[in-house]
């Protein structure tokens, strides 16, 4: 479905994506994993052909650079947050994209119904909650029944219930044979949705692996996300690693794997180093990221 060869993107002196190559077969599901600034979003934009880059991307054999709009017809894209004119009403926004994709009113209504937005057509986009905007973006992405869905942190603005709904929908899409490529900061999402993980760091493809390899199944644990001040994150990660915890530092706090009955341990360990924890979030059950220990 996607073949990318040597994708490189530079913003001035900063190398955002460096020589990334991978292939994604039809029906497969790949997660892009990495810290903030690792190049996930830039890579997605390169794949969509909305920014100029070096290297070659084809979707179903169609060159994204040369025949971008034909390639993008095969893609449903869900951004981190839906960006659409705030004054537009949900129904008219939906119809605009429906017409753009050659989809009739009935199909647009079905797409809205599928994401539970029927009855909200008269609401203005600015009045929608974060979750509703995300569902609208998903409805737009599914409008023309594209074979490939690309999502950029689709659940980052959602609460637990909203996240669960989106993940369930994506699982159903996978079962329906859709090809998925998504960026995520959440191990639980990656484990439940992806069959491969591309680990990006500083724009480079560090590993092309599987969730099972990244988070082995032998040690069932819970992942706790700790929110700290940005300045202390690196020190905190070092302190927790030295205390024997598996830590993953990404842009949304520190993910620490702990035993179910030892969730306070990382906080105590950080307190010993005089590092204050601002907030804590217990994620769904996942497996210990042995590789990052």
């Amino acid at each position: 479905m996607i073949h990318s060869a040597n994708i490189t993107k530079r913003f001035g002196k900063m190398q955002a994506v460096s020589d990334v190559s991978f292939a994604l077969e039809a029906g497969g599901s790949v997660a892009l994993w990495g810290s903030n600034g690792a190049g996930k979003t830039t890579l997605i934009r390169c794949l969509l052909g909305v920014i100029r880059h070096r290297g070659r991307v084809t979707m179903n054999g169609i060159d994204v650079r040369r025949r971008g709009r034909h390639a993008r017809a095969l893609v449903g894209y869900v951004p981190q947050e839906l960006a659409f004119h705030d004054d537009a009403r949900l129904g008219s926004a939906m119809m605009f994209f429906a017409k753009l994709r050659g989809v009739d009113r009935a199909q647009a209504a079905r797409a809205l119904d599928a994401v539970g937005l029927t009855g909200h057509e008269r609401k203005r986009v600015r009045d929608l909650s974060g979750g509703m905007k995300q569902r609208l973006a998903l409805a737009v992405a599914l409008l023309s029944d594209p074979p490939l869905i690309i999502l950029d942190e689709p659940t980052s603005n959602l609460d637990a219930a909203g996240r669960g709904e989106v993940v369930l929908t994506l699982q159903q899409l996978r079962e329906a044979g859709k090809t998925l490529l998504f960026a995520s900061h959440r191990p639980d999402e990656v484990i439940s949705l992806a069959d491969r993980v591309l680990v990006l760091e500083r724009g480079q493809l560090e590993r092309d692996t599987t969730p099972a390899e990244l988070w082995p199944t032998e040690k069932p644990v819970q992942v706790v996300r700790l929110y700290l001040s940005m300045a202390s994150e690196t020190d905190a990660a070092d302190a927790l690693r030295s205390a024997g915890h598996a830590v993953h530092l990404n842009g949304h706090g520190l993910c620490v794997a702990v035993a179910r009955d030892r969730k306070a341990e990382p906080i105590i360990a950080l307190a010993r180093h005089h590092i204050e924890v601002r907030d804590i979030e217990v994620l769904d059950d996942v497996r210990l990221p042995e590789a990052s220990q």
Partner: peptide, 17 residues
Amino acid sequence: SAQLQSHPIPIGMPTAP
């Protein structure tokens, strides 16, 4: 899932306008 399954998506590659 019932909502999604009750709206089968037509077969065929989407095209650009």
